[in-house]
């Protein structure tokens, strides 16, 4: 099997766990799936503040930020990342989220600028397909 040709311009995705939440199984599974779909995944680990996440995304020149949260603080922390991006003039960076998020909150978060939310039970392929639609060349 010969090595497949790597995309010349791989999409860089920063994955982070924000807030006080040590449940990182989900984010690691997603990281692996995105890796296997050919993306460059930068995983920054647990207990990040919105400022840390945005700062890292800027240094890494990531096009996408993926947030994982199971602590219930998504209504505070997800919009905080979006507003930190606004503060840094970096609203071109797309934010998506995942975790235990009720349907009503999903609608509200989308209104506040989170591009998409993936709740428990989402097939990994759905996340990959969503990214492929956002970045057709990848």
């Amino acid at each position: 099997m010969s090595p497949a040709k790597a995309p010349a311009k791989p999409v860089r995705i920063l994955l982070a766990k924000v807030g006080l939440d040590g449940h990182d199984r989900g984010v690691k599974v997603v990281a692996r799936a995105l890796r296997d779909a050919g993306y460059e995944v930068i995983y920054t680990g647990l207990r990040q503040t919105p400022e840390m996440v945005v700062d890292a995304a800027l240094q890494e020149d990531a096009q996408v930020i993926g947030l994982s949260l199971h602590s219930g603080a998504h209504m505070t922390l997800f919009p905080a990342v979006v507003s930190e991006l606004k503060k840094k003039n970096a609203t071109d960076i797309i934010v998506f989220g995942g975790g235990i998020i009720p349907d009503d909150d999903v609608e509200e978060l989308k209104k506040q600028g989170v591009a998409e939310l993936f709740t428990p039970g989402t097939p990994l392929q759905d996340i990959v397909e969503w990214l492929r639609k956002r970045f057709p060349s990848s």
Binding site: M1, P3, A4, K5, A6, P7, P10, A31, R32, L34, R35, D36, A37, G38, Y39, E40, V41, I42, Y43, T44, G45, Q48, E51, M52, D55, A56
Partner: peptide, 22 residues
């Protein structure tokens, strides 16, 4: 390292360097 097959990668070195964030 990148995967030789998909080109994808998990870049995880920042995890150990979090105290220098910001």
């Amino acid at each position: 390292p990148n995967s030789p097959f998909t080109g994808g990668a998990i870049l995880g070195d920042r995890i150990r360097m979090q105290r220098h964030a910001l």
